[in-house]
């Protein structure tokens, strides 16, 4: 890829669009999550601000912006303020290779998925820094949990994606989407159901969402690694959580659900519909299940997901090679 001025401008514009998408997504998801949660819990959810409470998320973000940043004593100042920023900005980069259409990609790199997997590891660094820098024991425990969980769940996630890469023979997300058809039976989910399942479980673990929300387990660690963050510090963690969720949902859509391809008319709307369907699924299980215990969380991974994903990879490799 040549780094011409046009390319550079394209990336800048894309970055701005991605920021807009991330913030917009957070606002939408806050509303969706609260409404879905309200529906599951048989209550209306937000309904006071604006028609059907649609402005609630806007008000919430205004509140977070205006809140006092309460800083605990004896913190590590640099790391404390670096952590939320570090949580937020790598996600920006991760959106670049996501294809929203055949030519609608911020940066069409051949090794798109490699980029995503490499940089998504940075998210956990911010969790460690946040937990460590805020001089809070809950924070430390949450950070420790975040590390072991991220390490554990990234492996089956990569294995599951690798199976698709084997099938396609490419690391480019656009290429992977192009290999799939428009109709559901032409999607990778049909040929790789096990990989899809493994990916689905590990994406919940990867994004620290319930029932795998151990790093911020409310009833145990109050808020885990972001216990001591308030105002915008908290908002950035919040934003990056939803941004991460959207990202893994996009990857899920691209790898398994045909990406921007769909019945009747291909286009970026299919990408969004599929990604948000996955998101709603994540929200749904969050409000339905109790939290697993920490040792169980790791057991699920090391005893089930990892062997299954390796098996899946082997079978895929054999089939690709000989058939």
């Amino acid at each position: 890829m040549d780094l011409s001025i046009a390319n550079f401008a394209q990336i800048i514009i894309a970055c701005l669009l991605v920021i807009a998408l991330m913030v917009g997504n957070a606002v939408v998801m806050v509303y969706v999550e609260r409404k879905a949660c309200g529906f599951i819990q048989r209550r209306p959810g937000p309904y006071e601000v604006g028609p059907r409470g649609i402005l609630q998320a806007v008000c919430d973000s205004m509140k977070l912006l205006g809140k006092q940043i309460y800083v605990p004593g004896n913190i590590d100042w640099i790391l404390y303020f670096l952590a939320p920023v570090l949580a937020f900005f790598p996600v920006l980069l991760l959106y670049l290779p996501i294809p929203f259409g055949r030519h609608l990609t911020a940066m069409n790199v051949d090794e798109g998925i490699l980029l995503i997997l490499a940089f998504s590891g940075l998210g956990v660094v911010s969790n460690i820094l946040a937990g460590w820098a805020s001089n809070n024991k809950y924070g430390i425990l949450g950070a420790a949990r975040a590390v072991s969980q991220a390490v554990a769940y990234e492996i089956p996630m990569i294995m599951a994606l690798l199976a698709i890469v084997f099938l396609t023979g490419s690391l480019s997300l656009t290429e992977i989407v192009e290999r799939q058809g428009s109709w559901p039976w032409q999607w990778n989910i049909v040929v790789q159901p096990l990989a899809f399942f493994i990916y689905l479980v590990s994406l919940v673990g990867e994004t620290n969402r319930a029932p795998f929300d151990l790093p911020e387990a409310e009833s145990e660690l109050t808020a885990g690694f972001h216990t001591e963050y308030s105002g915008m510090g908290f908002a950035l963690f919040f934003l990056s959580e939803y941004a991460n969720m959207l990202l893994v949902s996009f990857v899920c859509a691209a790898f398994f659900l045909g990406g921007y391809k769909g019945p009747f008319m291909d286009g970026f709307w299919w990408m969004f519909i599929k990604a948000y369907a996955v998101m709603v699924f994540i929200v749904w299980i969050r409000w339905t299940f109790p939290r697993v215990r920490f040792d169980q969380l790791l057991n699920i991974n090391w005893r089930w997901l990892l062997p299954l994903s390796i098996l899946n990879l082997w079978v895929t490799a054999v089939i690709v090679r000989f058939i």
Binding site: I69, Y70, V71, G73, N74, I75, D76, W77, I78, L79, W132, N135
Partner: peptide, 14 residues
């Protein structure tokens, strides 16, 4: 742990 206790921008310190 806090070798980097810089000037406190918010005036809250312990």
């Amino acid at each position: 742990m806090n070798s980097l206790n810089f000037i406190n921008p918010f005036g809250v310190s312990e």
